[in-house]
Amino acid sequence: MIDVKNLSKTFDKKVHAVKDVSFHVDKGEVISLIGPSGSGKSTVLRCINGLETPDEGTVLINGKALDFSNPKQAQKDRTVMGFVFQHFNLFANMTVLQNLTLAPINVLGKSQQEAEATALKYLERVGLLDKKDSYPSKLSGGQQQRVAIARALCMEPQIMLFDEPTSALDPEMIKEVLNVIRDLVNDGMTMIIVTHEMNFAREVSNRIAFLEDGTIVEMGTPEYIFTQSQNQRIQEFLEKVL
């Protein structure tokens, strides 16, 4: 479903954020990207969605290469992917319901009623139906992130991308967000998750990629990465975070 081929990205012409990264994601597969800060995990994810334009390499979705030099096409290609940010990025000038219906109405061309029905369905799913008329600033971080996930789901994406979805949350709110993501896993959603929640990654992922210095050091099943890998860097990293 997703093919990342020889992806490279440099910032400011020197810092190699991502070096020749390739991997494949099957439909319904959950992939976690782990590794130390600055290892390029987020950059890989942002390139897949086109928030960053890679210097080299291609990203294929359902066999079709993304062409982000063509804004109109990029806009269309993007809507098959939902993106969840570390800092939620709910539209501050809109209520929760408006956040959820904006893109379905203006991008997918749904009617107001149709969009609202979908929005309420997903709000109920993330357990925040009673917050539909609140502004984001009135919600806790965990609630904002659940709304952000619902907002992405309202576009009926085939793929969900999570960029450190719990890194900006207070510890007591992490669980409620992970539960929502776990619910999506059970639904068979194709997902790529950049995370520092090792136990969660181990629990939900089909495969885990360990990145360091912009390259994939190893990629394999959670069992392999966590218990069998002989790679010294991975062992050191896991020792520190577990």
Partner: peptide
Amino acid sequence: VDHGQFEAADTLGLSYKQKMKMVILPQ
């Protein structure tokens, strides 16, 4: 306006015009 607001609008597939009109300029 926070850069994340631009990015969120982009990931949802809003066009430049929609993004400016509905998300960025009001803020």
